[in-house]
Simulated scan of single mutants.
Amino acid sequence: MYLLDDSLFFPNPNNAPDHGLAAIGGDLSVDRLLLAYNSGYFPWYNGREPICWWSPDPRMVFDLKSNQPMRITKSMRQSKRNRGYEVRENTCFKEVMNHCGTVKRNDQDGTWINEDMLNAYSKLHDLGHAKSIEVFKDNELVGGLYGIDVPEKKIFCGESMFSLATDASKIAFMYLVQKLQQLDYHLIDAQVYNDHLDSLGGVEMDREAFLSYLK
């Protein structure tokens, strides 16, 4: 385990244990967060703990170069066509983060999206690094997602999504996949496996292979 100090540094992620926790400490400054995402790390911690930095093996991703990067169901297509959803980009980033932090999830007791994370990622958003996709119905925000864009590496690092209406977050994700494919992106980084990501078409990739995209 590496204890970070004030210097901008991360240990080689290839040396991290499989569960991914390789370093603790440091801060959530813009420069450190950008270095983290460009090095294959992401922060994930309880607000009462020191900041924890992860680079798991394997890594959950959506392969945008595959024949089917996302599993689109009949229900999703019907929702997109019939539910009157409107998709927007970067119009209410903080609201999306807040919803992601407060929506109840079956597999989680709490949230890692604390006030420090909200402030840090809002700064990244103001600088154009953090982005959100939002789904509205009758001009009300009902779903969305946010993440970190790494355009030089053609990777979008997904952080979280939420849904207050049927398939709303899936519509946001479908929009993101299609947009990134048009921009010739390689991957959406989904970090770690869960059943929901698997149902959407996420696949696990060896950490070494994932890190090769960041070189």
Rank of each mutant, 00 (worst) to 15 (best):
S39T: 10
L118V: 12
N98P: 00
G40I: 00
R81F: 01
Q78H: 09
H125V: 02
N38L: 00
C100I: 09
T111F: 02
V96Y: 02
E134I: 06
D116Y: 01
Y37L: 06
R81Q: 13
N90F: 07
F93K: 11
S75W: 06
S79K: 00
F42N: 03
D109M: 13
G84D: 07
E115I: 11
S39L: 04
Y45G: 09
T73Y: 13
W44D: 07
P69S: 13
L34G: 05
C52E: 15
M117E: 10
L35K: 09
G128S: 10
N98L: 13
D57N: 12
V30K: 11
S66M: 05
T73W: 06
Y41W: 05
M76D: 09
R88E: 10
R48Q: 15
E95Q: 13
D126W: 01
Y45L: 03
K80F: 02
N46I: 00
D116G: 00
C92H: 12
W53H: 04
L118C: 11
E95W: 01
R48S: 13
R105I: 08
L35E: 08
N106K: 14
R48A: 15
N98W: 08
S132C: 08
S79E: 12
E49P: 00
W53C: 08
Q108T: 09
M70C: 07
E134K: 08
V96K: 08
V30W: 01
D116P: 00
H125I: 03
L127S: 01
M97C: 07
I51C: 00
P58Q: 07
H129D: 07
R32C: 11
N82S: 14
S66E: 08
S66L: 10
S75R: 09
N38K: 11
Y41I: 09
Q108A: 12
R88K: 15
P43K: 04
G110F: 04
V87W: 02
H99T: 01
H99L: 14
K80I: 15
L118E: 15
C52V: 02
S79G: 14
R83F: 13
K104Q: 14
